[in-house]
Simulated assay, not measured.
Amino acid sequence: MSTAPQIDIDVAAFWADPYPALAQMRREAPIAFVPQLGSTLLCSRDDIFVSEKQIDVFSSHQPGGLMNRLMGHNMMRKDGEAHMAERKAIAPAVSPKAVRLHWLQQFQAHADRLIDAMDPSEDVDLVRDFAMPFSAECLKLITGLTNMRFQDMNAWSQAMIDGIANYTGDGAIEARCHAATAGIDAAIDDMLPVLTKTPDASLLGVMLASGMPIESVRANIKLAISGGQNEPRDAIAGTVWALLTHPDQLALAREGHVPWIQAFEEYARWISPIGMSPRRIAKPWIIRDVAFAPEERVFLMFGSANRDETHFADPDRFDIRRDTSKSIAFGAGPHFCAGAWASRAMIADVALPILFARLKNLRISETEPVRIGGWAFRGLLNLPVMWDECRH
């Protein structure tokens, strides 16, 4: 165990709203051991920004970690040449050029279809009726698993997310994660003959064409689903919610004074959809007089880094005019999110402008309160909305 000061948390309160506890840690112990999570947390933006690049110390390779055990050994849990080889293999599916040439037009078609299907006379939940299916349909295209239902894509992604954040060892959560990975394996098996015979630009297609071992292919598809579904889903609904509750800022975006991408980037700073990334200490190390021992677990708290007062004035305030260049919502260093360009296109190029352009007077409904939760992964659980008419 590290020599970091110990800070206790209420796990339920931390799930409901981690930011007060994270602010306390930044003030009192930017590196703190939290016994309820069994880990040492790095909460300072600068400590995380530097440490994530020191892969010889803060290793992503975690043979006994939850992700490896539940989802297989994917590129996120590899370092150095092993990581870069797999990252290079998937690049043709998720590069900015690939997004522009292969996916953007299809993203737009899915968004329009889903908006056409929503009826303002009914109770509409923007998470359930748009953000979730839109993210899932886009992810089906990118992964190559077009044989899946969007409902399964979402449910299996959530089950894996819950599984790899299951640091309290809940057996029911682990069982749901195993069921999800079995379902994904079956979907991959169905598509293997198709994409082996006729490769396409999807992740499954390019990985098979690269000659990547099938177990690595499976692990990386599960990685793409675990992060590629919840982050866009949560960021779409969350950014809409943030803008609707800050109408002056929504006006800036709608009138073109601030681009939609900036609204998304500020939301991803303010409410980091991916709030934490775990690391394994590979060798003895010292930061700020805190000594780390080999094999202990460390959490890089992106959600804390993005509210670090030394880089962001009034960090608890949502402000799309803010300079977000210091945000590390997508990570930093060699493990910067490979799907960042696809996410930005889905959210800032498609979902946000289409929703606000087509749904006249879009607003939050008072049928039920908006709920939000999570700390390792954080997002809206619902977003009841209404509008006056749908423009075409």
Rank of each mutant, 00 (worst) to 15 (best):
S2Q: 07
T3C: 04
Q6G: 08
I7E: 08
D8I: 07
I9D: 06
D10C: 05
W15I: 15
D17G: 05
D17R: 07
P18I: 07
A23S: 13
Q24M: 12
I31E: 02
I31L: 10
P35L: 03
G38A: 02
Q54S: 09
V57P: 03
S59A: 07
S60Q: 00
P63Q: 01
G64R: 10
M71P: 06
H73V: 13
A82P: 02
H83Y: 09
M84Y: 10
R87M: 09
A91G: 09
A91V: 13
K97R: 15
A109S: 13
R113E: 14
I115E: 03
D116S: 07
P120T: 12
D125E: 11
L126Q: 04
V127P: 02
D129V: 08
L139T: 05
T143W: 03
T143A: 02
R149N: 12
Q158R: 12
D162N: 14
G163C: 07
C177L: 07
C177G: 09
H178V: 13
A179S: 13
A182D: 14
I184V: 09
A187F: 05
P193I: 11
P199S: 10
S202W: 00
G205R: 01
G205M: 05
V206P: 00
S210A: 15
S210M: 04
M212T: 08
V217L: 01
A219G: 04
L223Q: 08
A224N: 04
Q229K: 14
E231R: 08
P232W: 08
P232A: 09
G238V: 07
W241R: 14
A242R: 09
T245Y: 05
T245E: 12
D248A: 15
L250K: 02
A253P: 04
E255Q: 15
G256Y: 05
G256C: 06
W260R: 06
I261F: 05
I261T: 14
Q262D: 13
E265S: 10
Y267K: 04
G275D: 01
P278K: 01
R280M: 12
I281K: 06
P284T: 07
I286D: 13
R288N: 14
E295A: 11
E295Q: 13
R297S: 13
F299Q: 13
F299E: 10
L300A: 06
F302E: 01
F302D: 00
A305M: 03
R307L: 05
T310F: 06
A313T: 14
D316F: 05
R317M: 08
D319Q: 06
D319Y: 02
I320T: 03
R321K: 09
T324F: 07
S325R: 15
K326E: 12
A329S: 09
F330E: 00
A332S: 11
A332Q: 10
G333Y: 02
P334L: 02
H335G: 00
G339A: 04
S343V: 08
R344S: 02
R344V: 01
R344D: 00
A345D: 01
M346C: 03
M346A: 12
I347S: 00
A348N: 01
V350A: 02
A351E: 01
L355F: 05
F356Q: 00
A357W: 04
R358G: 05
I364T: 08
E366Y: 03
T367R: 15
V370F: 02
R371F: 09
I372Y: 13
G374C: 08
L380R: 00
L380V: 05
N382F: 06
V385I: 10
W387Y: 09
